[in-house]
């Protein structure tokens, strides 16, 4: 009797674990190209953010949505934690990352569309700080979003990195700009779009250094090898750049800090 109860209990616990690990499905469904599941960071305006009405909005989401409409595909946007983007992609929870996703330096890690934004990593400092060049930042603290391409850009420029007092990695840029405001960091390294957006709302309190830390490009990333989906998306993306759709969508996001000049597919 006691043994029976023990075994029963064991079974219950194993089941609980199994519930966590297994499922009724068992097999991954075949790749469905008629559905585009876009993974994005809802804390990354102007490419993905929460609009005033509480819905998800952003240049990249609007583009993706329009692209699906034109292709007759189903569209789904999934807000993800940016640090988990690779796991989300390989687990199939999303099938592309389309969110100001830096192509430069990650060429071999994903299957990419053509770059559609040429962005640079720039440094934002307080207007009254007296800092005007990268060299002026020697011995200072620079903030960058953890896991972002700004961190990669700093790492790539070893001389610059070694001249700094520290690189402060925070989960989001909002915190970074608050730190800049409070003086606990001296500069924020960010994409041009992010930087432009953040200084636009602060009435000239911040400036962007003329000298960029690096230049970089944004593209849509797919799971490595998923060329089928990439090809379909890319072809339509080029058409949208060609026929003016991209530019007209982009106009809606200028207020949020989208730099029209950075759209490199539009000529």
């Amino acid at each position: 009797m006691k043994k029976t109860i023990s075994i029963l209990l064991a079974a219950v616990m194993v089941l609980t674990c199994a519930l966590a690990l297994a499922s009724c499905g068992g097999k991954k469904p075949a790749e469905e190209t008629q559905k585009l599941i876009v993974g994005f960071d809802a804390e990354f305006p102007p490419f993905g953010f929460v609009a005033e009405d509480g819905t998800y909005d952003g240049f990249d989401l609007a583009m993706a949505k329009e692209l699906c409409k034109r292709l007759g595909w189903e569209f789904e946007a999934v807000a993800i934690d940016w640090n988990s983007k690779d796991a989300e992609l390989s687990s199939g929870n999303i099938n592309c990352i389309w969110n100001g996703f830096t192509y430069t330096g990650r060429e071999d890690q994903y299957t990419w569309s053509d770059p559609y934004v040429d962005n640079s990593i720039v440094l934002v400092v307080k207007a009254d700080s007296g800092i005007t060049s990268l060299a002026d930042l020697a011995g200072k603290s620079v903030m960058a979003q953890a896991g972002s391409s700004a961190v990669d850009a700093i790492d790539a420029n070893e001389e610059f990195k070694n001249s700094l007092k520290e690189v402060v990695q925070l989960p989001d840029y909002n915190t970074g700009f608050m730190d800049l405001d409070s003086g606990s960091v001296d500069a924020v390294a960010a994409d041009l779009g992010v930087a432009t957006f953040n200084i636009s709302s602060k009435d000239g309190a911040y400036v962007i250094l003329d000298e960029p830390l690096s230049t970089e490009q944004y593209a849509v990333g797919f799971l490595l090898g998923n060329t089928e989906l990439r090809d379909a998306v890319n072809a339509e993306l080029l058409k949208m750049a060609e026929d003016g759709t991209m530019m007209s969508i982009a106009q809606n996001y200028v207020d949020e800090g989208l730099v029209l000049e950075s759209l490199c597919l539009v000529k």
Binding site: A20, L21, A22, S23, C24, G25, G26, K27, K28, P29, S84, A87, S90, S91, G92, N93
Partner: peptide, 20 residues
């Protein structure tokens, strides 16, 4: 994170429903 990602990444299962 382990509970969320393990089914797909380790066991290649897609858990139905709102697994997130």
């Amino acid at each position: 994170m382990v509970i969320y990602f393990a089914p797909a990444l380790v066991f290649n299962f897609t858990v139905p429903g709102n697994w997130r």
